[in-house]
């Protein structure tokens, strides 16, 4: 597109990126040297370079543990659920918000749905407890409602089955509004005449939302998707840990890499293995993102991320 820019002006332009490059070099790249600990048997007193190398032992150890497979599957399943659900919720909400009339209502709506983003995981966990188990572990709002309809109640905190859905619901609640703000910003940048053309053709508002707005949100969704895919191996530690904690009964469906790592670090302070798992997450993330970017470029060069 703008390859017309001359080399000299490119240089001037490059100046704009210098502070950010410096930031990344100092605060992100320099500390990355710490990753070598993934290949070491870390010992506090010996420090990094004094600690003996142990090759791939740290990696082998993680994969040899019977838990690796379950944790990997959980991590991917939960993250795919979260990503799909929050993106869908964000797009839907943004389109709906765009339909709203009346400045005040629209603003009030945006502020309100953005709010759950700020609620700390601890408070989310407590609210969930009120809903699912009530004070002192009996009943809870949901069970009261179930009983009201003559349905059997569920002992939620000892039933692993429903948890992926419960967590997904929590994520939608937390991030639906947040995502919708990003999408709404994209919607406001859609040119008016596109809609005018639609109106002349006699399209209903629903049709316009479906045929015009939705396709035009693709680039934004693609960016979010690609970024999300890169982080698919990272669980949402804060929320999951606050809610599930050390409740082993729920691990079959909720234990993810990050919660697993946190526990093993807390219990035995194993820096080497932790770093190894972190590196593994990074490498897989990198591969996933590269693939996603390549695929995306094939389909729409226009909106390519990199």
């Amino acid at each position: 597109m703008s390859t017309r820019t001359s080399v000299r002006s490119s240089l001037w332009l490059g100046l704009l990126a210098v502070p950010a490059v410096a930031f990344f070099l100092v605060f992100s790249y320099a500390p990355m040297a710490g990753l070598v600990v993934a290949f070491k048997e870390f010992d506090i007193s010996k420090g990094l370079f004094g600690s003996p190398w142990n090759g791939l032992d740290n990696f082998r150890y993680f994969f040899a543990s019977g838990d690796a497979q379950r944790i990997l599957v959980n991590t991917i399943v939960l993250n795919v659920l979260f990503l799909a659900a929050t993106l869908a919720a964000g797009v839907t909400l943004a389109i709906m918000l765009n339909e709203l009339r009346g400045r005040f209502f629209k603003r009030a709506a945006q502020s309100t749905i953005f709010f759950p983003y700020f609620v700390s995981p601890v408070v989310v966990a407590i609210m969930l407890q009120v809903l699912l188990s009530g004070p002192a572990g009996d009943g809870g709002v949901v069970n009261d409602a179930l009983a009201g309809f003559g349905l059997p109640t569920v002992s939620w905190y000892t039933e692993p089955g429903p948890w992926p859905w419960i967590l997904t619901f929590v994520k939608i609640w937390q991030l639906g509004g947040y995502m919708s703000v990003i999408f709404l910003a994209a919607i406001t940048s859609i040119p008016e005449d596109v809609y005018e053309a639609g109106q002349i053709d006699g399209a209903s508002r629903a049709q316009m939302a479906l045929r015009i707005t939705l396709p035009l949100l693709k680039p934004t969704a693609a960016v979010l998707l690609v970024l999300g895919v890169g982080r698919i191996f990272y669980g949402d530690f804060g929320t999951i840990y606050a809610i599930v904690g050390d409740n082993g009964t729920l691990f079959p469906t909720t234990d993810v890499i990050d919660t697993y790592v946190f526990r093993s670090l807390r219990q035995i302070g194993d820096f080497g293995t932790t770093a190894a798992i972190g590196l593994f997450q990074s490498v897989v993330g990198f591969v996933l993102v590269s693939t996603a970017v390549l695929i995306q470029r094939r389909y729409s060069k226009e909106t390519s991320l990199l």
């Binding site: 500390p31 710490g34 670090l265 080497g272 770093a275 972190g278």
Partner: peptide, 8 residues
């Protein structure tokens, strides 16, 4: 994640 890094 107090991921190890040591004194690199």
């Amino acid at each position: 994640l107090a991921a190890g890094g040591g004194l690199s």
